[in-house]
């Protein structure tokens, strides 16, 4: 298992920020792109892997996202953080994938889902199931916060929501997730988390 947080050592090895690297890549530095890839390959793979049941598709979409960064490099402007930009592309690609899957399921019948979850570790099975029960937008806010470590403002920008909505949705998602994880216990509110020792 890999730690998909950003690698502090690797960052220190180069010393430059993501945006600087991207600018360097825009000027033609392949090395800068290689460094960006090194920093984000695992977080981005995690991003797709947690949202898709199909591991192979997660790989392909990670690759597609980096290829999209490559292709869009000429148009890139350092107006936003690179990671917001990267996840924005990732989200677009993910949504396109979901639309395609939904279309296939609608017109061609449901495809066979791979039994990857079953062979995975318990934590993954439990979490995937629990997170899967959340309302889609709440789920997205929660995942972006917990795994991509994005700030409320970044999530708001990515999902085109007001920051306050992100906060309330995140709170709702966490409350709901707590309820799911503690089931079949009675319905728990956020205030109830203290009573149940906040075990989620």
């Amino acid at each position: 298992m890999a730690d998909d947080g950003r690698d502090g050592d690797e960052r220190a090895a180069d010393g430059r920020g993501d945006e600087e690297l991207m600018l360097a890549f825009c000027r033609g530095s392949q090395q800068a792109f290689a460094e960006l890839f090194k920093r984000y390959r695992q977080p981005l793979f995690g991003f797709f892997r947690r949202r898709l049941a199909d591991a192979a598709r997660a790989e392909e979409l990670t690759q597609d996202t980096f290829v999209a960064v490559l292709r869009g490099a000429a148009r890139w402007e350092p107006t936003a953080l690179f990671r917001t930009y990267l996840y924005a592309i990732g989200l677009k690609i993910l949504n396109a994938e979901r639309r395609k899957a939904a279309f296939r399921a609608t017109f061609l019948g449901p495809s066979e889902r791979e039994p990857a979850a079953r062979s995975s570790l318990d934590a993954e099975v439990v979490m995937r199931d629990a997170v899967g029960r959340l309302e889609p937008m709440d789920r997205e806010v929660l995942l972006l916060r917990e795994f991509e470590q994005l700030s409320y403002a970044e999530i708001a920008e990515l999902l085109r929501l007001p920051v306050n909505t992100v906060r309330s949705r995140l709170f709702r998602a966490r409350t709901a997730l707590h309820a799911v994880l503690t089931a079949p216990a009675p319905k728990t509110t956020a205030a109830g988390m203290t009573e149940s020792e906040g075990r989620v």
């Binding site: 298992m1 390959r41 570790l121 989620v200």
Partner: peptide, 13 residues
């Protein structure tokens, strides 16, 4: 909750 979620690791790419 964040710690619990962090247990959901993904394999190396």
């Amino acid at each position: 909750m964040s710690e619990d979620l962090a247990e959901w690791m993904v394999p190396e790419i």
